[in-house]
Nucleic acid binder design. Sequence first.
DNA 1: GATAGGATTCACT
DNA 2: GTGAATCCTATCA
Length: 188
Amino acid sequence: MSDLRLMLERGAEAAVRGLLGCVLVHESHGVLRAGRIVEAEAYTQDDPASHCFRGRTERNRAMFGPAGVAYVYFSYGMHHCMNVVTGREGVGEAVLVRALEPVEGIEAMIAARGWEGRPLRDLCNGPGKVCRAMGIGPGHYGADLLAGGALRLEPGRRRRGETVRLTPRIGISKAVELPRRAVLERSI
DNA sequence: GATAGGATTCACT
DNA sequence: GTGAATCCTATCA
């Protein structure tokens, strides 16, 4: 039982902070891509903005799975977004990965996004961009991120001078005021 | 069976 | 800053 799993099982509101600094890794076609999670949002079952607010459906069933599996969904007809499922099995909770700081395989990310010659800071600073750059898609729906597979989550360290700030969420129309978005910031 | 709207991104003004 | 692209899901008739 890893520390990471225990942390995720504690629930979305704890996990949204704990996930910051952790590293998302994807190995495909012999290429390794990795990025530190620097922005995330918690979604729980009692949250009107959550996909599982109205109960279990065919689309959101992964959110009710065990902590550590991926919930990938399709949005706005053109983007995929990835969540890390939290809480106990049977509870609909997850943390949306909103932004990464590229660590490894940056060239592959740039190629996947068609981002040649553009600002690096805009490569992974959005949930749709994260999936595109990392090569995450519907095929990863329900994948176990803690099992050491091709797509996995690894513990990360928070660096000196970095702090977690909780802010209202963005991009949604319901329950916007809840401070369930966590951002990793350099305080110096 | 039909329709409204969305946990977004990008290009353009 | 504003608006278009684009399609799946949930919800309603």
